[in-house]
Nucleic acid binder design. Structure first.
Lengths: 343, 343
DNA sequence: GTGAAAGCGCTAACAA
DNA sequence: TTGTTAGCGCTTTCAC
């Protein structure tokens, strides 16, 4: 038994061939015509030594690290982790590995940034776009060095971007409320990039219009993307009053909003129907269980990796919307037909 | 402006010194006595070229990739992601990067395993221990190649391990219920590694004993670690009846348990008090808000990285329990003094 | 104080 | 059909 990890030369020696041949053979070089007997000797040797090619040496030689980094803001956020899971699976599938990086650390720690982005350590970067300063900064600088895809973003430009269909999601959610007979439907939006906010608002507006209702700007408030923000947004909304239903553009925010409504004496869904954008496992176990619009987040993460790989193959940066599967309304207990007059 | 990324030779050339000198200088080699004038020339050149050392070349030369992998089962689980966040922060702090790997993929896809673990791609492995077959397998094989630390585990052996204080957590939670006057306190345990399950059960037993109560084996059921499992566990428990409070050894499971209790007509906390092990942001926004025991998960992730680095420096594998900060009881609305007779 | 040279393990171009 | 060679960019030992 050898004490140190075997190299390609060890395999070559054992099989009595040259390292170059082992390399081409094991990498499935199709332009190679080997005697099948030789091939077997090589494979047997590799197996006997339990040879695994050294990833670092290969990366240096190929000028490809086989690593994709994903810059996230809050790894604990279930929405983000769904994206990350999709990305990890797709990366792994393609023979890549996924590196986790904190966007804020990247933005504020130059050494960390250089280590991750600038030193050839990664072949591509996936960047969670939350609408902060850091985001824009990192995206701009990083994309000069390495193919980059902005997640949750639809910026048109030299940097790739991918998003879910915000408009459709908002439309589906709002239509559901309208179909239940609600006529005063509020909107709790997320303070992300303006264009995204706009698309969701238009989905809400158009769904209202389609139902013969008139969007009331007074029924729009900011719900952020945390339970706390959602609770605050709901407080603002409740102070104005005059609605029987609300579409909340983020599920964590929605949970906070429901909590706040309850604290101020409203019962969901009796007094107030709530639909949240995004879905996750817990939604079915909350009280009340939450009606949501499920979006293809894992698919988005996976596709983002695909876009990155295409760029690595020389393709241009693209801008995509993941529209399949389409936003799916998951009706649970937080929505019900309107009853009585708005309060 | 140069088109390709500058190498150390470019810097050396510009500064009119040798690459070796640049390397030692930029890496802060203390045994180096350079003319301060030369030093400035080098630093200026590096700055002018915006030089970042190539991480891959460095890794090859140093035989250190600067990468730590964390094998997780369910990245979306808030408990796991807290650990991951802690690990990421500590890794980044130490100049390392964190790679995400799916344990099941590692276990079932040999190519993926080799790529991640066997090819010198990582310097260390953090392994989420969920008690599955895959876990044990991976741990065994991986640890032959690379320093490994088992998360959430207290296995004594050549493989490092780290855990939170399960016993104390269960004790704190159960004591709280006992102090509220509950005398029939059930336990919904997680079907993880036996020793862990045992420690939590002993915490529960000892807390009961300390309160002069007798642990009743009939009041133990399996609550798993998902809302669904928790709901099932609660169903089992409710079928037996005879308790007014329950300690649930996992927060997701607790949410399912509460949901189930509600579905079968019980009100938490009026009919049933619930304490969950582990805490996360949403707990304060549920209905009812959930009393929990908060554990140092981020700290555990961070410390695990520290243990790995110590092993890389030649230290032996250790087995630690993160006991600081101590398990913290966070009292919310799911617990209240006992009232009436058990049902 | 600084330079020169070797080599980490691999792959790709070129020879034979 | 297979071997030889060069070199990716860096660090480190040794020499001057």
């Amino acid at each position: 038994m050898r004490d140190s990890t075997p190299t390609i030369s060890d395999v070559a020696r054992l099989a009595q061939v040259s390292p170059g041949l082992v390399s081409r053979l094991l990498n499935g070089d199709t332009s190679l015509r080997v005697r099948s007997e030789t091939e077997e000797r090589v494979r047997a040797a590799a197996k006997e030594l339990d040879y695994s090619p050294n990833a670092v040496a290969r990366a240096l030689r190929r000028a490809r690290s086989g690593l994709i980094a994903i810059g996230v803001h809050d790894a604990g956020n279930p929405i983000y982790s769904a994206i990350t899971e999709g990305a990890e699976a797709a990366a792994s599938e393609a023979g890549y590995a996924l590196m986790l990086a904190d966007v804020d650390a990247l933005a504020h720690d130059d050494a960390a940034f250089r280590r991750v982005v600038a030193g050839g350590a990664i072949d591509g970067l996936l960047l969670q776009r939350a609408g902060t300063e850091s985001d824009a900064l990192i995206a701009k600088i990083a994309s000069r060095t390495v193919p980059t895809v902005l997640l949750n973003d639809r910026t048109r430009g030299s940097i790739g971007s991918i998003a879910v269909d915000d408009y459709a999601a908002a439309h589906v959610a709002t239509s559901h409320l309208a179909e239940l007979g609600h006529r005063r439907i509020a909107l709790l939006q997320v303070d992300g990039p303006k264009s995204r906010t706009d698309r969701r608002r238009r989905g809400w507006e158009d769904a209202l219009a389609a139902a013969g209702l008139v969007p009331d700007p007074a029924l729009i408030a900011n719900g952020g993307h945390t339970p706390e923000d959602g609770a605050n947004g709901m407080r603002t909304l409740l102070a104005k009053g005059g609605f029987t239903a609300v579409f909340v553009a983020n599920i964590l925010s929605a949970i906070g909003a429901v909590s706040r409504a309850r604290d101020s004496g409203r019962t969901v869904p009796d007094d107030l129907s709530v639909v949240a954008m995004h879905d996750f496992g817990l939604a079915a176990y909350l009280s009340p269980t939450l009606t949501t619009v499920r979006l293809p987040l894992r698919e988005m993460g996976a596709r983002a990796v695909g876009m990155l790989l295409e760029q690595l193959d020389g393709g241009a940066a693209t801008h995509e919307v993941v529209s399949s599967p389409a936003p799916l309304l998951v009706v649970r207990d937080s929505t019900r037909p309107v009853s009585g007059s708005p309060r």
